[in-house]
Design a protein around this nucleic acid. Structure first.
Lengths: 253, 253
DNA sequence: CAGCGCAATTTTGCATTCATTTTGAGGATG
DNA sequence: CATCCTCAAAATGAATGCAAAATTGCGCTG
């Protein structure tokens, strides 16, 4: 018998559905997803079923259900009789994921032009200038956060919960890479990105859907190029490492 | 002890991952998904857990795992302590889903322009003229199939398995509506659609990515309008019916 | 006769248990 | 000394069992 851990629930947003579940095994799903997305387990490493059971204070059944869902979401991989592993994203996967993000943002921009309010545009402008400040101060971290929030605002303004959920899903998958990729931002690319963002804002103000759609896709393409270049560089330093990694770090922390 | 059901596996494409699982509980997932997508259970109706267990010859555990995944995919809904129901798509949901499809096809078209071979274009042309034939003969059913195959070919030509999986997922969600919507095609809309398809083919030949992207989105928007108009008409005839439906049809057939 | 409440049955959710497979170590053998 | 085989230990995948919640049916009351 387990020690009846409270398990009281945050709202939690599922990627597949929009109605907020009040509480359920969805709590565990959400927690496990966060746990994985936040990088608590190394890429390619096994997902320690039993230890996670202890960590969450549950039995294997609900955990395995959550694992199945996470596999469907593309965060982990389920090998036939050899358990779950954190999904190792190949170069190809990253190409594909960045293009997916490009497509989704492109769509979000188009829809946003149909639905965005003036106030929302004002808010995005505010974020934009804030971001510009971080750019001038070379504050990479806050620049990244402001950047992310702008993109999220656009997705928000699309008024499409389905799109928002899909966006969250794919964003989760490449979260680690995106963040590390940010460190790659050479000054030059950074300036480019700022100019692109100005174009985005301009198109948004004019509610030029098709145009914004185009800009956003190419913006993401540039991001993809920068990110993957960075990744290649990093790999040159530390080649193909963690494919057979048996690491199962800080499960108990 | 179960009677050792063969369970030999079709390839099966998961929505989240691309590597083909040879066989697994994924077999059940796939079967159950098909079962739902094919409309064997009425919209809004409860998913009869026990009966499905008997149908598939398994216990509740793997079935419930599959249900969780299907819920994440958006095909069914999981109510806190009241089991699973076939997801009832609201008007809003349909709006959103059609726009999602528009975004995905838009992206597919853009990427296809980068990757499609001349042979593939030739094949799409062939399908196009075939479809044109069905159009002239007013053969709605085959027109629909050819149409669908063209769109699938474009997605195929995007060379993006992630996109393909997402496309399959969303296509599955609105499958029923899309098909029924087809019956709504007034002659006028039909002719419009043919013209749009010619523009699609033209842009594809010229590898005009941005242009194709735009055309495809608006093409899907038109489809959405037609489909939802049809739906509205149908609803006028038979208003809000199946919300409390307890139907659990041909589970044993 | 209609509305309400209560108890029995069903159903849901999770824990536990069981069979099968994989994995690892140790020893035997060439 | 390396390789392969055997066997034990662990883990995976699925079935069953059990407590709690919900649904249903029935009797009661107004």
């Amino acid at each position: 018998m387990k020690s009846t851990i409270p398990e009281n629930g945050e709202p939690l947003t599922r990627p597949g559905g929009n109605g907020g579940e009040p509480s359920l095994h969805g709590e565990i799903l959400s927690r496990l997803r966060d746990y994985v997305v936040e990088g608590n387990i190394a890429e390619g490493a096994r997902v320690p079923e039993r230890q996670l059971c202890e960590l969450f204070g549950i039995s294997r059944t609900p955990l395995r259900e959550a694992l199945k869902v996470l596999a469907a979401e593309g965060l982990i991989e389920l090998l036939p009789n050899r358990g779950a592993r954190i999904r190792q994203l190949s170069r190809r996967d990253l190409d594909e994921l960045f293009d997916m993000m490009g497509g989704l943002e492109s769509l979000a921009g188009r829809l946003a032009c149909e639905n965005i309010t003036d106030d929302e545009i004002t808010e995005i402008e505010r974020l934009h200038y804030e971001m510009y400040g971080f750019y001038l101060r070379r504050d990479m971290h806050n620049y990244f956060l402001a950047n992310q929030r702008i993109h999220e605002k656009i997705v928000e303004a699309s008024r499409n919960a389905t799109l928002r959920a899909a966006y969250a899903n794919f964003a989760g998958r490449i979260r680690r890479v995106r963040y590390s990729a940010n460190f790659a931002r050479k000054r030059q690319r950074w300036g480019e990105a700022m100019r692109e963002h100005e174009a985005i804002l301009d198109a948004l103000r004019r509610r030029a859907g098709s145009e914004l759609s185009d800009i956003l896709f190419h913006h993401l393409r540039a991001k993809r190029t920068a990110a993957l270049e960075h990744l290649d560089e990093a790999e040159r330093g530390a080649p193909i490492a963690p494919i057979g990694s048996t690491t199962a770090p800080n499960v108990n922390s």
